[in-house]
Each structure stands twice: as C-alpha cells, then as structure tokens.
C-alpha cells in the first residue's frame, strides 16, 4: 500500500485553513444580510398559528 502520510498532513492543514476562511466569509455575510439585527429571529415565531398565540410566545 502506498504511503499517504504527507498527503494527509497537507490535506488536514489546507482543510483547516479552508474551514476558517469559510467561517469568516459566512460571518461577514450574516452581518451584511442582517442576521444580527432586531428582526433576525423573527422566523421562529412562524410555528404559532394565530396572531395572539404568536404575541404570547414572544413575551413569555
């Protein structure tokens, strides 16, 4: 069997760098797209049907 020690080390380091870069890109995008704004969590109230139930959920 061939020796894959060095290729796997290169793979691991470049993979790690890629992940960090990806995380940074997505962090910047979330800020730009307004995920951290006041309405960023609105979606989670969709599970409640009626308006009242929704408002209740928000306050409790």
């Amino acid at each position: 069997m061939a020796d894959y020690t060095w290729p796997s080390i290169y793979f691991a380091y470049s993979y790690f760098v890629l992940m960090v870069l990806g995380a940074l890109v997505f962090l910047i995008r979330t800020v730009k797209d307004g995920y951290w704004g006041a309405r960023g969590e609105d979606v989670k109230y969709q599970v409640f049907d009626s308006h009242e139930e929704r408002e209740e959920g928000r306050t409790s």
Partner: peptide, 8 residues
C-alpha cells in the same frame, strides 16, 4: 447570499 438561501 445567506438571505437568499434563507428565503428561496
């Protein structure tokens, strides 16, 4: 891009 994935 994220917004798009979130609403489309």
């Amino acid at each position: 891009m994220l917004r798009k994935a979130d609403t489309s």
